[in-house]
Amino acid sequence: MMRSSPFLRGTALAVSLVLSAPAMAGGYAKSPPAQQSNEESRHRTLTNSPSYVPIAALTATVQANHRARGLLQIEAGLEVPDAQLRRRVERYMPRLRNAWVTALSVYAGVNYRYGDIPDADRIAEVLQEATDMTLGEEGAQILIGMIIIHGD
C-alpha cells in the first residue's frame, strides 16, 4: 500500500478547494429572492405616477444648549413631469442630496427650536429652493411625505 506525504495531501486539498470555489461562490453571490423583495419594498412609493422620483430619507441634527438633542428626519420625493428633467434629476441626485441636507441643517440650527412642532411649509420652501438652485431651473416639485423629530 502506498502512503502519500502530508505535502501531497495538503496540495490536493488546496487544489480541490480552488476548483470548487467558483461553485461555492455562485451560491452566495446573489441574495435569496426573499431578501431582494424586502430591500425593494423598503422604498415606499407615495404615488403610482411615472413622474415621481423617490428620495431616501433626509436627516439633520437638532441642537439645543450647545449639544445634539435629536434628529430631524424627512421622507420626501420629487414630482418631475418632464422626462428630460427627470433624467437630469437622477444624474444630479448626489448634488441634490447635499443641497437638501445642507438646507435641513440650516433649518434645524436656525429656524427650529427644540421641542416645537416642525414647520412643514417652511421645510418644503427650503427644500424647494435648494432643488431649484441645484438644478438651475424650476420644474421638479418637492413632495413631503413625513416629518419626524427623534428626541433623546
Rank of each mutant, 00 (worst) to 15 (best):
E138W: 03
D82H: 05
A25V: 12
L46R: 12
P81V: 13
Y92D: 14
A108K: 07
L58P: 07
L19P: 03
T102P: 01
L46A: 15
E125P: 00
M2C: 04
A34D: 15
A120V: 13
N98R: 13
E138R: 15
I123P: 03
V62I: 14
N98G: 07
S49L: 14
R42M: 12
N38C: 04
G27P: 01
H43G: 05
R87I: 12
I74T: 08
V110Q: 14
S51F: 07
V15H: 01
G136T: 06
L96S: 03
I144E: 12
K30T: 12
A64H: 10
L8F: 06
I144S: 11
S51V: 05
Q35T: 02
G26T: 09
H150R: 11
E40Y: 11
N65M: 04
P81Q: 10
H43P: 00
L78Q: 10
G151C: 04
G26W: 12
T11R: 00
N111P: 01
R86W: 04
A56R: 09
I142K: 02
L135D: 09
D152H: 02
A29Y: 08
R42Y: 15
S4W: 12
Q84F: 08
V126A: 00
F7H: 08
G151N: 12
I144W: 13
A57W: 00
P33M: 09
A130K: 01
G70Q: 07
L78E: 12
G145T: 01
L58N: 04
R42N: 09
L17C: 14
G151E: 15
S20V: 10
A124V: 05
R122Q: 13
Q36F: 01
D82V: 07
A34P: 00
T59D: 11
A99D: 00
M133F: 01
T45W: 09
R9I: 11
M2G: 08
L104I: 10
L85V: 08
E90Y: 07
P94G: 07
A29F: 09
E40T: 07
P94M: 07
S31H: 07
A12G: 15
E79T: 11
L19Q: 06
D82P: 03
T131F: 08
S49W: 10
A29M: 12
Q128H: 04
G115D: 03
M133W: 02
R113V: 15
S51C: 06
L143D: 07
N48S: 14
N65C: 01
V18T: 12
M1T: 11
I117P: 00
E39F: 03
A12I: 15
L13N: 04
P94W: 02
L143C: 06
L19T: 13
T102V: 05
A83L: 08
A99I: 02
E90P: 02
A64F: 11
R86Q: 15
R91C: 01
A56Q: 13
A14R: 04
M1K: 05
G145S: 03
Y114T: 06
R9F: 03
